[in-house]
Simulated scan of single mutants.
Amino acid sequence: MGKHYFTPEEVNRLIPELERIIAYLRRLDAEIQEKDWRLRQRKVEARRRDDKVDTYTFLKEEAELDFLRILSQTQCDRIRQLGGELKGGYLVDFPALIDGQEVLLCWRPGEPEVAWYHGLHEGMMNRKPLSDAKGDPAADSEG
């Protein structure tokens, strides 16, 4: 089975689900950061007080963090199952063909439709508007 190249229309149909996934990911990430910070503070305070600390002292908090990280990874995996690749800043890239060249359609939360692309080894700073593409990305699609 060959690689699937997305059309802008295909990505646009995924946007409602991507928005839900990323909103959940953001909540999970915020909770992970908060719990991790609190746990580190508790460990520092315990050391400062010279409390007896063993493997079980912070087991519940560590387990909660592990669970939240698993939930977060599951959401990232779901984006991959949809065909996208999650990048920093919650951007999602999808492989596409424009003018016979392999590129990445680039979407970020809040954008109503995919309107940007960039080269395989470029990032958001090199995004170009799809409207500037010489060829029709939908016509170049394979898959």
Rank of each mutant, 00 (worst) to 15 (best):
M1F: 04
H4M: 10
Y5D: 03
Y5E: 00
F6S: 00
T7F: 02
P8T: 01
P8H: 02
E9W: 02
N12G: 05
R13K: 08
E17V: 04
L18P: 01
L18E: 10
I22F: 06
I22C: 10
A23Q: 04
Y24A: 14
Y24Q: 15
R26P: 03
R26Y: 02
D29V: 09
A30W: 00
A30S: 03
E34C: 07
D36Q: 11
R38I: 06
L39Y: 05
R40Y: 06
R40W: 04
R42A: 09
K43Q: 14
E45F: 07
E45C: 06
A46H: 05
R47L: 11
R47E: 14
R49Q: 11
D50M: 07
D51G: 06
D51P: 03
D51C: 01
D54C: 00
D54Y: 00
T55G: 03
Y56L: 09
Y56Q: 12
F58D: 14
L59F: 11
K60G: 10
E62V: 15
A63Q: 15
A63R: 13
E64Q: 15
E64S: 15
E64W: 14
L65D: 09
L65I: 13
D66Y: 15
R69M: 01
S72A: 04
T74H: 08
Q75E: 08
C76G: 03
I79W: 00
I79A: 07
R80C: 03
L82A: 11
L82V: 12
G84Y: 13
E85I: 11
E85Y: 10
L86W: 15
K87Q: 15
K87G: 10
Y90D: 11
Y90R: 07
V92E: 13
D93F: 15
A96P: 08
A96H: 05
A96L: 02
I98R: 05
I98S: 00
G100F: 05
E102V: 06
E102N: 02
V103A: 07
L104V: 04
L105S: 01
C106P: 04
C106M: 00
R108Q: 14
G110K: 06
P112C: 04
E113K: 12
V114T: 08
G119V: 00
G119I: 09
L120W: 02
G123Q: 12
R127G: 08
R127A: 12
K128E: 11
L130D: 13
S131L: 10
A133V: 02
K134C: 13
P137M: 04
A138E: 11
A139Y: 01
A139R: 05
S141C: 07
E142K: 09
E142N: 00
G143R: 15
G143V: 11
